[in-house]
């Protein structure tokens, strides 16, 4: 292979050294956190005062991640089966088909995405209820 001395090609890569004097592109993670966007698909939330227990979310979930369980109190009088969904995050793929199919839009996805635990059983996730918070705020 014949190859001529390519001085430009040898020296030019060193221009990257100028980035040594620029601001870092990364975040100081534990102190500074990335903001997720509004429609980010994170953990589930369920407004139990709107949930009618129809089970459509359980039906469309292809990973069988959603179970319908008995809540302590049924918050919606129109809940036809008196059941609410629970998600197994070991199986969920965050496709958000369950929220698309929800007829009353009670099931939504939040912006939170980080969950750390040493206990694998904790990934069986009881969906937090948002109806309570709204009452406290209002």
């Amino acid at each position: 292979m014949n190859w001529k001395l390519d001085i430009k090609g040898i020296l030019e890569p060193f221009t990257a050294l100028k980035y040594l004097f620029k601001q870092p592109a990364t975040l100081l993670y534990p102190f500074e956190k990335r903001k997720t966007t509004e429609n980010y698909r994170g953990f589930h939330r369920n407004d139990q005062s709107k949930c009618i227990g129809c089970g459509l979310c359980e039906d469309i979930c292809m990973n069988d991640a959603i179970d319908m369980i008995k809540p302590e109190i049924v918050k919606n009088a129109k809940n036809s089966s008196e059941l609410i969904p629970r998600v197994d995050f070991g199986r969920c793929c965050w496709c958000s088909l369950c929220t698309d199919v929800c007829p009353t839009k009670s099931l939504t996805l939040s912006n939170e995405y980080s969950m750390v635990s040493t206990d694998p059983n904790s990934f069986l996730y009881n969906i937090p209820d948002t109806s309570k918070k709204e009452k406290q705020n209002g």
Partner: peptide, 14 residues
Amino acid sequence: RPGREDAMDVATER
């Protein structure tokens, strides 16, 4: 994995 036995069938519950 155990822990999901308390799931109920929507049609029968309804």
